[in-house]
Structure formats: structure tokens, C-alpha cells
């Protein structure tokens, strides 16, 4: 994938817009005073934030703090007890499962362990939505090859998930999330449990999607290195890999949030994150 961003052929996995004016457009996701409780204390308590078009939001926090729950609330996989969640302007908290399906098709989601269907080949996993929509086989094969080439795994076309490594499964999961050209991508700990080299490969794919196709995203992670790399690097389409931004520069569309015991305790830029006085954030960073 070395096409010029913005050309009609270059945007198979995103909105295709190359110029982002976040202030001028409606947010893609809006959380307003959202709370959810299972058994015991609230998992999320009075959470409010938004994701603007073209924005990449990184959700930090230790394990078990409710990061994955927050992600699943966005596309209605879970329902909040209180508050409203707007996805593309629709309040998913009040919609039925039937009404949610068209919205979910516009949303790409990468699950923590990939969540590939064991009984299907990589081709059928990646093409799952297209198969349900009865897209012709030739078209499916072409788009699956394109998506797998994007994650540099075209050779696994006929493989079953069981024969893939953990990192390869995540990359196939990314290909599956991107094939339907989502308008927002939700990444649930895409590098969790992976070695540093594979993690960097995954982060590079996330960056490629952000910088080349400008798809807004929300990425959950507890790995600071991955989070900071997304701010300090950009994807260089001519080199085909990520490159360090000049010293002192960070990606303006990548911002951070942090959860502690179900509450959103930080929401801001990388600069604000590293200079915050919040004790919990400081401890987490150190």
C-alpha cells in the first residue's frame, strides 16, 4: 500500500478524507455521563468524552479498570446503566440490537485476542461481513488480498487461525476490521501479550491507518511505549514504514485519556499527560 493518500484508490479502509478540521465536524463518538455496573462497585462512573473526525484517542489505565468495557459500550455490545452514548449521532444506549447492526457495520473493532472464528480460514474471517452481504466471490477475494497485503499477511490467505502466531492473529483481526472501510476503528489492547517487535509492527499498522487514511480511532492499551510511539512518530508512505517526528513535535490528532477505578482522571495531549500533577497518572507513567 504505497498509494498517494487521498486518491480514490488509496482509501480502501477509511473515510478517505485527508484534511481534518475536527472543530468544524460533528464528533464521531460522544460519551455523556456514562456509568455501568455489573456486580459490585461501578465499572465506569460518570464518563464523558468525545472522539472527533480524524482523531486518535488512546485510553490508558491498568488492567481491570474498565477500558475494554468502555470500548464495547461504543458499538452497543454492552448497555450503560446511565448516560448517553452517541455513535455517528445516534444514541446507541436507547437502540435495539436490530437497529445497532447497521451502525456496527460502519465501525471496525479489533478484539484483545483477535477473536477470529476458529472454524473459518483467514480468507473467510477477513471477508466475514462481505460474505454475509453476498458480495461476489471474485470481489471478496480481491478485497481480502488487498486487506491482507495492508497487514503484510497475504501468504496466510488459506490458513486457519490455529496455525497463526499471536501477532499474526492480531494483524488478521485488523484486516477484518478494515475490510468494510469503517468510519471509526476500536482497538482493544492490540499489542497486549505480544513481544516488542510484533507490537511495533501492530502499532505501525495503527499509525498507517491513522496517517494514510485518517480514520478516527480509539485505542485501549496499558503499554506506554506503544501510546507514546503513536504521538512521536508518523507513517511515511514513501518509505513504507513509520518515521520519528522532529524533536519537540507530536501528532496533534493523537490525544490521551486515563481511567482509574471507573473514573476518567485525565483527558488531554501528550504534553499535558507528561506534565500533569495527578498522582495516579504520575505513578502510572513512572
Amino acid at each position: 500500500m504505497t498509494d498517494t493518500p487521498g486518491s480514490p484508490h488509496s482509501a480502501p479502509y477509511g473515510s478517505g478524507s485527508t484534511t481534518v478540521d475536527a472543530a468544524a465536524e460533528e464528533p464521531v463518538v460522544v460519551f455523556r455521563n456514562v456509568s455501568i455496573t455489573f456486580d459490585g462497585p461501578p465499572v465506569l462512573n460518570d464518563i464523558s468524552f468525545s472522539v472527533a473526525p480524524g482523531e486518535t484517542r488512546i485510553l490508558l489505565g491498568p488492567a481491570g479498570v474498565g477500558k475494554s468495557v468502555l470500548l464495547k459500550l461504543i458499538n452497543g455490545l454492552l448497555r450503560p446503566d446511565q448516560g448517553s452514548i452517541l455513535l455517528f449521532g445516534h444514541d446507541v444506549a436507547t437502540m435495539t440490537e436490530e437497529q445497532l447492526f447497521p451502525l456496527r457495520i460502519r465501525t471496525g473493532m479489533v478484539f484483545q485476542e483477535g477473536a477470529l472464528f476458529d472454524s473459518l480460514t483467514v480468507r473467510d474471517n477477513v471477508a466475514y461481513q462481505l460474505i454475509q452481504e453476498r458480495v461476489p466471490d471474485d470481489e471478496i477475494d480481491r478485497r481480502v488480498h488487498e486487506a491482507l497485503t495492508f497487514v503484510e499477511l497475504d501468504s496466510t490467505f488459506d490458513f486457519y487461525p490455529a496455525s497463526l502466531s499471536g501477532g499474526m492473529r492480531r494483524r488478521v483481526a485488523i484486516a477484518r476490521a478494515l475490510i468494510h472501510r469503517p468510519e471509526i476503528i476500536l482497538y482493544d489492547s492490540p499489542t497486549g501479550g505480544l513481544d516488542p517487535i510484533t507490537s511495533t509492527t501492530i502499532i505501525e499498522l495503527v499509525m498507517k491507518q491513522r496517517d494514510v487514511y485518517r480514520t478516527p480511532s480509539l485505542l485501549v492499551t496499558h503499554r506506554l511505549q506503544d501510546a507514546f510511539t503513536l504521538s512521536t512518530h508518523r507513517f511515511d508512505p514513501t518509505l513504507g514504514r513509520m518515521a520519528l517526528l522532529p524533536t519537540g513535535e507530536t501528532d496533534p490528532n493523537t490525544t490521551y485519556m486515563m481511567l482509574e477505578e471507573g473514573r476518567l482522571i485525565f483527558d488531554g495531549s501528550l504534553h499535558e499527560l507528561v506534565h500533569t500533577d495527578n498522582k495516579f497518572v504520575r505513578e502510572f507513567l513512572e
Binding site: 447492526f101 478484539f111 472464528f117
Partner: peptide, 14 residues
């Protein structure tokens, strides 16, 4: 438990 059901829902399939 492997989130395949959630993945199916997220992909727009009941």
C-alpha cells in the same frame, strides 16, 4: 469466552 460472539455482533451479524 474467546469473544467470537462479540466479534460476530460487532461485524453486524446476529
Amino acid at each position: 469466552v474467546t469473544e467470537q460472539i462479540d466479534a460476530m455482533r460487532a461485524l453486524g451479524v446476529d
